[in-house]
Design a protein around this nucleic acid. Structure first.
Lengths: 148, 148
DNA sequence: GTATATGCAAACCCTTTGCACATCT
DNA sequence: AGATGTGCAAAGGGTTTGCATATAC
């Protein structure tokens, strides 16, 4: 079914090692160090396969190209558990979590916690099944630097 | 600076009349009825101009192409006012608001609540400046129809 | 040996842009 | 007339796909 290839491993490793979300081009650059000649198409294919395999999570921020993160790794301080939530289908479901996007260095890191009570925000008669939340601001590093 | 053209009016009207968010191709199809020969490029250009003019709002959902909504005034009071998507006046305040996305009919409507307290969700040292929230589920109409 | 993954190039979707012509004021 | 908008076609990012070859099992 799913073969173990140098490319597959390199893609997975690049994400696990980085501890943050990476775009396919970023993955390519890093993964090439362990898989010379790696192609962007292969990155896209592996990233999709690894996602449905439950090993990666696709992270999509409004207006930005997709990024991916290794499952359940936190790169910036906090960890703890994420509260799971209703799933629509029946696949390997990643834990429910949201993301923080640093507008300065453009990094995206997972955050724990969730405001919850989403159903109350919807108009009457509407049925909330899931939600996406993205925080924008400055990460710890960029918050300290004056300007950049 | 900004000229009044048949195309500009048609783009604006299509959004005002629809009461929901529309993608550029959707705008094109509707607006063409009042501006034959209208081109998709023009829709993109007008939509951008009208946005910086404050007459439209760009709505970006994770993983989806951009949509736009008319920025209409909305009387006081409603809880679910902006929910219907026919001819009823839509609600879109210049203020902070989020969106509900119906996974069945794919409509996107503004909602006016907000969980708040976003700073508490961020890791220590992180500074939250803004956030995006999108609710996914079924709108009132689609919630009643037999699930599929 | 056979099925699957890879690399390459081309195609696709969404959006932007260059340019000559049309249109508004 | 002068400035701005429009249509068309081509280009640009991001992502997917067809196909022949290479590779894992």
């Amino acid at each position: 079914m799913e073969r173990h290839t140098r490319q597959r491993q390199a893609v997975l490793d690049s994400l696990s090692a980085s501890g943050r979300t990476l775009s396919p081009p970023e993955i390519l650059e890093i993964a090439r160090q362990h898989a010379p000649g790696l192609n962007l198409s292969t990155v896209y294919r592996q990233v999709k396969a690894l996602e449905s395999d439950g090993q990666l999570v696709k992270v999509e921020l409004p207006g930005q190209p997709a990024r991916f993160e290794a499952r359940c790794r936190h790169g910036a301080g906090g960890d703890e558990s994420c509260s799971s939530r209703s799933a629509v289908g029946a696949a390997a479901l990643p834990h429910h979590h949201h993301h923080f996007h640093c507008v300065v260095c453009n990094a995206v890191v997972p955050i724990h916690g969730c405001p919850g009570a989403m159903q109350e925000l919807a108009p009457r008669g509407y049925l909330v099944e899931s939600h996406d939340l993205v925080l924008h601001g400055r990460c710890a590093q960029c918050a300290q630097e004056p300007a950049r």
